[in-house]
Design a protein around this nucleic acid. Structure first.
Lengths: 192, 192, 192, 192
DNA sequence: TATGAATGAGTCTTCATTCAT
DNA sequence: TATGAATGAAGACTCATTCAT
């Protein structure tokens, strides 16, 4: 049923009608309203699902003695996110494009999610600062820049290119990480 | 009349009705259609206007002997963009949020604009590469990351904060530029 | 539902609004659009229905040995047509008046129908010519005159007079047939 | 100015907008309303003009001793009408098609005109009856048939064929007249 | 006498939602 | 649990008409 919300990803929230959805899903109008209160509800459920999975895919850097290198952990985060979004391409479209202007509540939820992401990044920066690895900077601004950069690259990677396009995720992740680590680390210091 | 399209910025394209617009503008229904073919037309005109102004605000780095330093030129670009968008806060909202899912043509126009921006950034990187200042990297990916970072920071700066919020644009611009130049320059090299 | 299209007959296509129709039919706006694509569609369906029934009511003269006299057959045609149109007075109005200037396609459809009628009449004339019963004449012109005459008489009979007006259809049909057979037959010849 | 009401003939009353008219006429909106109260008014004026001219073109049969033969007079009537309508093809279209369903008043005016025509024909028949030339018949029905036949033939002649089509008006008029005179005259009697 | 910008009532059409079966 | 016919509020757009200049 939910896979019929590929429609949201393809056509956007407003361009997708209940008629589209029930037809794709092969169910009756009434049945739809049996499971969802309204159009907004299914959309919200879809987005909540993705945000949850994203929240789980992203883990704060573990600085414990046994933990893998910070670089490794960050790369793994990137990999998990890319993989997840690659599977849920249509939901990604919702996340990056389709969810705006629907509702104040909705916008807030999304803003909150992105804010959480930005804070996660910022907390990593602050951690680095404390360890003397990250140079002093406006951590809020930098974390926003990092977040936005990720969004844009993922957007390009996953939505602008066809689904089966060959891509070197490893190289890509490294590129991004390099850009930001170099941009942010104290000179001379390097990631393990 | 156009200032009544603050509505688009505030509420988004779909949530803004012709009735809203004409009421805000204090004109009659027919008058609206005297100047715009339809709802889409006014929205498009608004966006076109902003894209044009942005295109003009952003200038490629001049490498001539008399030209200011590259850093200065990039900072100036940033300043001009921020200033412009600060004035046209509502249009910025359209640009960053409201224009999606309206129309294939429309999406294409926006995608094209962002692509132009990304290419401009990329060409700067390539220039730097040729001068031996920029380290080898995936220029496409990096330029997308830069573009996305800018979008996110501007979004935060201009839309999340109230209109009259005090802000140190100079420091902000420096922060962003630093992040990216450090992330991208050959080690040891610095911007004049 | 269809009887609510008496409105078309009474007021004409343009003067009849969807609001009129749904009010007369006692249904909701949406319900109307559930069954008809648009205003034009219901009108077209109405007309198609009538044209079909008329096509069936009118039969070419059978010249076989067992067939009733030509005069009888023509009278029967007239009777059937008058009866049909008498039942569907409102549709007749559409046919004779209301369908003009709506659409090129529509005009064409109507013109085609009348052309078919004229050709049917003409073919009867030609048959009569071959049998030596009909005098030489411009068969096209005569058939048009016959068709037009019928239309005008029916118009007067059915629309100008109230619905319950007493009328001697038999005498009327004879009058018309007489006029045209006398006008058309070789002198001295008479219809069986 | 009035020739811009060729539009009415071409497209029908409803499909012709004031915008069309003033554009064709090369005048301003306000100017139009300086000369005509409203859209209906110009249309009515146009029709009145034509009806007047038709009324003048059609003359009752003069039975005086010096008068030309009745056949000649009827043929002349036909010629004058055809000529007039040929010149005013667009007005003819209004007359035959475009004027229906506009307005009860309007329909009445048209109905009245046609009634006048029918009565004129009927009075000729009655005259013929008195002279013993016309056979007993339902004069009302016959006159309607004649009127309708004329309308249909003229419609075909003038509107279905291109403007410059060659046509033998003399032969046509004779054909029509023959049809009706034969249909109506006492057997053995012929028109002088 | 001519203009044309402004008007707003009127119309068609869409679509999320309900509810009796 | 499933259906889908019915609903009607809402919205975009048209166009005859007015009136200040």
């Amino acid at each position: 049923m939910r896979e019929a919300a590929r429609l949201f990803g393809d056509k956007g929230y407003h361009a997708t009608s209940i008629a589209d959805i029930i037809q794709s899903a092969g169910i009756a109008r009434g049945t739809f309203y049996l499971y969802f209160d309204n159009k907004r509800a299914i959309f919200e459920e879809l987005v909540d699902l993705l945000l949850d999975r994203l929240d789980h895919a992203i883990r704060l850097v573990d600085t414990g003695p046994e933990a893998p290198s910070a670089r490794r952990q960050l790369l793994d985060n990137l990999h998990r996110v890319i993989e997840l979004l690659d599977e849920e391409r249509s939901l990604l479209a919702i996340l990056l494009e389709g969810a705006v202007g629907l509702d104040r509540d909705f916008d807030d939820k999304l803003a909150e999610f992105y804010d959480r992401m930005a804070r996660a990044i910022e907390s990593s920066l602050i951690l680095g600062l404390e360890f003397g690895m990250v140079r002093p900077c406006q951590t809020r601004v930098v974390s926003l820049a990092v977040l936005g950069g990720l969004k844009e690259v993922l957007h390009d990677l996953l939505l602008r290119t066809g689904p089966g396009a060959p891509r070197d995720v490893e190289a890509l992740a490294s590129s991004i990480l390099d850009l930001y680590t170099r941009g942010v680390l104290v000179e001379g210091v390097s990631f393990a």
